[in-house]
Amino acid sequence: MAHEHHGHDHPHPFQPDHPEPTSYYELLGMALNELLIEKGVYTAGDMRAMIEQLEAVSPETHGAKVVARAWVDPDFKAALLRDGAAAVSSLGLDPGYTELTALENTPRLHNVVVCTLCSCYPRSLLGRPPAWYKSASYRSRLVREPRKVLAEFGTTVPDDVEVRVHDSTAELRYVVVPMRPEGTEGWSEEDLATLVTRDSMIGVARAKATR
């Protein structure tokens, strides 16, 4: 019925009479880039620098530091929840150009983020989104059966905990502040940051448990 055949995130050959494993649209992107450089819209150096700039952001180097600080510093956590961009800037990190909103998980509330219409993602803190975040199945199903999708990630949320799905449709970007794992009293901020995974900041998982 409404079950659709969804696209997947792999480049695929679609012209059987051409031996190259490159799609028309991949070539279109390459052609456009070459033309924009030749026409002086930007330089090859701009392109290299932009690729490097985008690669430089990762959950480990950015998002995890913000969460670890929030775990050890209640004032920072309060500031982060009040005005995400200002708090992130105070750590010397770029908050991005959209309104950054931090969502705190508690023993009563589990937050999880999706963008049903495209793939809005807090790239200034987490870098590029994983393939599954952009997939049709995540985007279609999380808003309707969040507990089932969470279970597919190995995250079971008890019924007495509210699950709150955030559909990122407009000008806000969301980062989840997962709960600090038990048994980490006295840990350094640096050690705590190693427990903060990308998936825990999207909300499909909890922070890593301690051994």
Partner: peptide
């Protein structure tokens, strides 16, 4: 692009 609420396969993580 309007996928919210449609049926779908399990998520490949």
């Amino acid at each position: 692009q309007d996928l919210g609420g449609l049926d779908g396969d399990s998520v490949d993580p």
